[in-house]
């Protein structure tokens, strides 16, 4: 079933703040096997000009994708989440995410398309810190594959 085109441009309310924890960053860096000291050693991060340990570039996806959940599960949009695969992902950074950040995400539906029975949804997540400064934007393309013929 084609998605409702009137959802293009719709913006959802900002999420509650997510507080970025030092140990959460360490856990993520270990999970991707990345020993870069800027992720775990505040002094190493400071030597690079950062006020505290920073998160690996893709860390923020866990936060923006959770925020996108309010779009994906919006019953008025009608996306069949059981058929969804991740198509594209992009980030544009103003600065790296770092320990102590309290981040909110504002999700906007950028585009809704149907191609060959697949529903394609582009969601933009704008991430801001507690001071209201823009930190990063995440673009997520989700593809709901066409239901197979019975």
């Amino acid at each position: 079933m084609a998605l409702d085109q009137s959802f293009v441009g719709r913006t959802y309310p900002p999420t509650e703040p997510y507080e970025v924890g030092r140990e959460k960053i360490r856990e993520f860096a270990e999970a991707v096997g990345d020993p870069h000291p800027a992720y775990t050693d505040a002094e190493a991060a400071k030597a690079l000009g950062h006020p505290d340990v920073i998160a690996p570039p893709t860390f923020v996806f866990a936060i923006t994708f959770k925020a996108a959940g309010q779009v994906i599960t919006d019953p008025r949009l009608g996306l069949d989440y059981s058929r969804v695969v991740h198509g594209d992902q992009k980030f544009a950074y103003v600065r790296p995410v770092r320990a102590g950040d309290r981040l909110t995400v504002t999700s906007t539906i950028e585009s809704v398309k149907s191609m060959a029975g697949n529903d394609i949804l582009d969601i933009r997540g704008e991430v801001h810190d507690e001071a209201g400064e823009h930190v990063v934007t995440a673009w997520t393309k989700l593809v709901a594959r066409a239901a197979e013929e019975a």
């Binding site: 690079l48 000009g49 920073i54 992009k90 544009a92 950074y93 790296p96």
Partner: peptide, 9 residues
């Protein structure tokens, strides 16, 4: 410096 990444897609 991982913080030097400006865009990634």
């Amino acid at each position: 410096d991982p913080g030097a990444v400006v865009e990634y897609g």
